[in-house]
Each structure stands twice: as C-alpha cells, then as structure tokens.
C-alpha cells in the first residue's frame, strides 16, 4: 500500500468501519446527553475534534520520549491541557453554548475516544497518520452527533433551529417531546444501532 492510499484509509476509517460511537462504543455519554439539539452537537463535536487532533499530533510527535510505564498520566495531562484551552475559549467567545454544555466540556478529558486513540493509535504511528486519524475520528463523531441531533430535535420540537434560524419546520403538529427528553436519547441511539446491525447483516448475506 503506498503512502497516499494508506493516508486516506486512516482518515476515512473513522466514518463507518471504525466509527468511534457506533462500532467501538466509546464516548457515548456526551453524545447522548447533548444531542437533544443539533447546535449543541456541532459545538461539542468541534471541541472534541480539536482536542483529539491536537493531542494525537503532540503524543505521536513525542512518542519517542515517553517512558512506557507512565504513559497514561502523560497522555491525560496533554489531553487536559487542550481541554482547558477549549474550556476557557468557549467560556469567553460562546458563553451561551458554554452554559448549555456545562460540565460536558471538562468531561472531554475523560471522553474515552480521545484516550483510546492516544493509546491505540497515536502512540504507535507517525505524526501525519495520527493527524489524519484524529480528523477522521472527529468527523465520524460529529457525524453521529448531527444525525442524533437532527432526529431528536425534528421529532421532539417539530423544527430545526440552528443559530437562531429555523431551517426546517414540520408545520402544525404536536411534537412528542419525549425525543428531546432523556429516554429519547437512548431510544434513538438504540434504533440507530439496530439499523447499523441490519445493514451489516445484509452485507454479510450478500
């Protein structure tokens, strides 16, 4: 495999084959909690992708110097520094979004996706591939957040509002608000997983 195709592979595997949420089932908590509106999903997804890409790059570039025994604390400190950057900048520039996301921003530190990629990928691969991996995983993460947010907001409130603009409206109907409440998150995600299972079974039957 030459350099270009493997680079594309590192980037694209995050979408479906190794999608962090749907296939690896890590980092579920934040996804379910903030996906009641599409806008929240965009903010949290971008924040997590930023942390993921930066920590992947830093960790893979200093992987030669990290002693094996204490690598986990080192990873965590690196990740925590980037999360602090996000935490403070978001508080300063997007106070409204920060207020709704609340504790989920500091909790990016313990988002399993980031530590899993640091330990499972960035620690063993080149800087360029780790960068692509972070970007691809981030994209897969944002993708699921958007799908979940779309379904839940559309069904739960009857319309999609992005940055104070109504984009889609279902017209006059009484929306089942269960979808933007807590059980809706579990329900939507369970059904999405079942859909993916079905898709996989079809593929393996062919």
């Amino acid at each position: 495999m030459d350099e270009n195709t493997s680079g594309w592979h590192e980037f694209s595997k995050g979408f479906i084959i190794e999608n962090p949420l749907m296939v690896l089932m890590v980092g579920l908590c934040a996804t379910l909690a903030v996906s009641n509106r599409m806008e929240n999903g965009i903010f949290l997804g971008l924040a997590a992708t930023f942390v993921l890409v930066c920590s992947n790059v830093i960790i893979s570039s200093i992987r030669g110097f990290i002693p094996d025994q204490i690598r986990i604390p080192i990873f965590i400190v690196i990740i925590a520094s980037f999360v602090t950057i996000v935490d403070l900048s978001m508080k300063a520039y997007f106070p409204a979004a920060y207020a709704t996301l609340g504790v989920w921003i500091p909790l990016i530190v313990v988002n399993c996706i980031i530590l899993a990629r640091a330990e499972g990928f960035a620690y063993k691969n080149t800087v360029w591939h780790s960068f692509l991996d972070g970007l691809g995983m981030g994209a897969g993460y944002i993708g699921v957040l958007l799908i979940m947010g779309f379904i839940r907001e559309l069904l739960g409130t009857g319309k999609i509002v992005l940055f104070d603009k109504t984009i889609i409206s279902l017209g006059p109907f009484n929306p089942p608000s269960i979808f933007i409440l807590f059980p809706g998150a579990f329900l939507t995600f369970g059904c999405l997983l079942a859909l993916l299972n079905r898709y996989k079974m079809r593929k393996s039957n062919e």
């Binding site: 059980p183 998150a185 329900l187």
Partner: peptide, 8 residues
C-alpha cells in the same frame, strides 16, 4: 441496541 431500549 436492546440494552439502549431498556435504558430508555
């Protein structure tokens, strides 16, 4: 998937 439905 069924675990999530139960959680719901």
């Amino acid at each position: 998937p069924i675990a999530f439905i139960i959680a719901a």
